[in-house]
């Protein structure tokens, strides 16, 4: 299982995340995995089922925002937890493929409710290591 590169930054009410990737698809998959890591310990999630989501956006921020909304919906509407994630980008179109399984209260400890991914202060930018993103989730 790939460790995703992210950290939590100070934010008074909600959670402000900063994730990194060597390229844009790597950054986006780090962001998706960061989101699922906030929900549950990904080591307890089996990669038994594959789900995909496709979004389009004019800017990298827009693409990331729509991608994270779809990722969160996998859990909040369909009770699906992801263990791994892969992202491909072709022009404006972004495809997310995650492997995971349905939430099982006997094996998964989901102890935080994430209400939504917000567009507030969302940033996608180049960094000395490749790419960096910051986004706020409402908890």
């Amino acid at each position: 299982m790939r460790r995703c590169r992210y950290r939590l930054l100070a934010h008074t009410a909600d959670l402000l995340l900063e994730a990194r990737g060597t390229d844009l698809p790597g950054l986006f998959s780090s962001c998706v995995l960061a989101l699922f890591s906030l929900l549950a310990d990904r080591r307890t999630v089996r990669g038994a089922k594959v789900r995909t989501a496709e979004v389009t956006g004019d800017t990298a921020e827009e693409q990331l925002f729509f991608l994270l909304r779809e990722a969160l919906l996998m859990f909040s509407a369909h009770k699906f937890l992801a263990r791994t994630a892969r992202v491909t980008i072709k022009g404006k179109r972004v495809t997310l493929t995650v492997a995971g399984e349905n939430y099982d209260s006997s094996r998964h400890l989901v102890d935080r409710e994430i209400k939504a991914v917000t567009a507030h202060a969302m940033v996608v930018e180049r960094s000395p290591w490749g790419y960096l993103a910051r986004f706020v989730v409402d908890v």
């Binding site: 934010h11 008074t12 009410a13 909600d14 917000t118 567009a119 507030h120 202060a121 706020v136 409402d138």
Partner: peptide
């Protein structure tokens, strides 16, 4: 009041 998203809380 504290930092929210868009509007403050």
């Amino acid at each position: 009041i504290h930092w929210g998203y868009g509007f403050p809380i």
